[in-house]
Design a protein around this nucleic acid. Structure first.
Lengths: 156, 156
DNA sequence: GAGAAAAGATTGAGTCGTCAAGTATTGAGC
DNA sequence: GCTCAATACTTGACGACTCAATCTTTTCTC
């Protein structure tokens, strides 16, 4: 009891610490692979994936930012790279001159497909080595509760 | 079936995506608070916490790096900041001139205590709002399986 | 015990993302 | 229909971290 200078215990803190470490470990690994094999960061990949699943393969930049938990300026800079490579195009909006869509190009979709192949396989291996199907589900469900309600804080 | 251009499904991928989002959301929040209230990043905090719990409140820089999942150069730079602020001191090792310890100063310990107060409270609130004690334990146990065996890959 | 490999740590260059401030456009109130 | 706040986005300055290269010291091998 006296050796403990500072409270580290507490299930909440332990869970959060585990989250930090799990993220650092997995992200570092996957990101390195993705960069080495395809020249994409994890965030590049996640952004392109969101676009691929969106109607017309395009999304407003703000919405994209929210989905991948980046700031608006972060999205601007990330997209600048993808636009430069030709994976994503800027499309202006007819009804609102303020918004610019980010649209995945055909080349971008091909790129994403190629990257997904190895990336998805790596994830599958790492996770299925460590968890049973039901544990996987439990982990996902628990983690999905964490993000703080997006854009919906109080509406009476 | 035809609307799905790319496989997103798969419990492994969903779990990993949830991990990314959970980390981004919580980290952003806690880090902002910590920086605003105490001028420390989450990593600063985690490093000081590890030191506080280590024998003599000191650790080799390599070991520290491993614990918080930073590269050696990352640790050098992070510690440079803490040394500059006086929270951490460099201590050279008598038996091996290559190693330098990072040692938490008395001021550093005080600083850490002050920061812990609000930081720990924030974490507790966020997590206990969302999880029961048994869920918290489950989450921690699942997450702790993820970091890829540290330094122990193959020893016959 | 001399030379080669390994281990601890730092540095330079570059990337990625943040915050704060700024521009432009839209829409609501009077 | 004019002002004023809110929204969408960009930019400049900066911070945190990475990789690759380097330096020093230790340890292994013969």
């Amino acid at each position: 009891m006296s050796t403990q200078l500072l409270a580290r215990e507490g299930a909440e803190i332990e869970a959060f610490t585990a989250l930090l470490r799990a993220h650092a470990a997995t992200t570092r690994e996957f990101n390195a692979d993705l960069v080495a094999d395809h020249g994409l960061t994890i965030n590049d990949y996640e952004v392109m994936l969101r676009l691929a699943h969106a109607p017309d393969r395009r999304l407003r930049r703000v919405d994209l930012a929210e989905e991948v938990f980046l700031t608006p300026s972060g999205i601007t800079r990330l997209l600048a790279g993808l636009e430069h490579s030709g994976w994503v195009e800027r499309v202006s909006c007819a009804s609102d001159a303020r918004v610019t869509y980010a649209q995945l190009t055909e080349e971008g979709l091909e790129k994403l497909r190629a990257a997904a192949k190895s990336h998805v396989a790596s994830i599958r291996i790492l996770f299925s080595e460590r968890f049973s199907p039901s544990e996987l589900e439990a982990l996902r469900d628990l983690l999905q509760r964490l993000p703080l309600a997006e854009g919906a804080s109080c509406e009476p």
